[in-house]
């Protein structure tokens, strides 16, 4: 997994609440293997008009947002289906960080597992950021995961929270399966004890 330490990129505002993972990537693309670039599938149906042409008004279709790595989104971003392909689509389109007032829980976890940083901030701060991105000379946001801060183009800084375990896996680009297998003995002991206490759960009979 790609490590995430710092990021300095333009940012795009997506001011719509409850962007579900069906909108991030429609179901018909979910059979695509990970080895295929998922970037083309990102927001596939909502960034196009009825004739299938890219809608020039959609935020990620504008020339100034080409190559942007940061999305500043609204409440409940990534709600709905657990499809990890939603994160693949964001990641392959170059997005490395989504800042929003809240996230779907499964989407949040999936992001961490793929080197994409979800940052939760109060909605009033998000509203300020949208305003700053609209009015500042540039839309560059610096994200510093080690120090848990973001720096806005108008000089303002905001701290953010992330739990230490997830922070560590992101910074080190760590695959947690390797970490977990170091506890193999404890896992086996737990299973042995469980089989003695609750034998009906020990295997599928």
């Amino acid at each position: 997994m790609e490590a995430f330490k710092k990021l300095d990129s333009t940012a795009a505002s997506l001011q719509v609440a409850n962007i579900d993972t069906d909108q991030i990537i429609p179901a018909r693309f979910l059979k695509t293997p990970r080895s295929t670039n998922h970037g083309e599938f990102l927001f596939h149906d909502i960034r196009r008009d009825a004739s299938g042409e890219l809608d020039p008004n959609f935020i990620l279709n504008t020339p100034e947002n080409k190559g942007t790595q940061i999305l500043v989104a609204d409440t409940n971003f990534g709600c709905g289906s657990s499809r990890e392909s939603a994160v693949y689509a964001l990641f392959d389109a170059g997005i490395r960080c989504v800042i929003a007032p809240s996230f779907g829980d499964i989407f949040y976890n999936n992001s961490i597992k793929n080197g994409l940083l979800p940052i939760e901030l109060d909605r009033n701060i998000i509203e300020d950021i949208w305003q700053i991105l609209k009015t500042a000379n540039n839309t560059n946001i610096e994200v510093d995961l080690e120090n848990q801060t973001i720096h806005l183009p108008n000089g303002q800084n905001f701290d953010f929270q992330i739990d230490p375990f997830r922070k560590q896996t992101l910074i080190e680009g760590l695959d947690d399966i390797d970490l977990t297998l170091k506890y193999r003995q404890l896992i086996e002991d737990h299973e042995t004890n469980n089989a003695a206490e609750r034998p009906w759960t020990a295997t599928v009979y």
Binding site: S82, R83, S85, N110, F165, D176, T180, L181
Partner: peptide, 22 residues
């Protein structure tokens, strides 16, 4: 609870999951 593909892989490989207490 529902999990994503990486967590499915983690379960298959370890029969465990890391979770923050909700």
């Amino acid at each position: 609870f529902g999990i994503g593909a990486s967590e499915v892989a983690h379960v298959l490989a370890t029969q465990t999951l890391w979770q923050e207490k909700p």
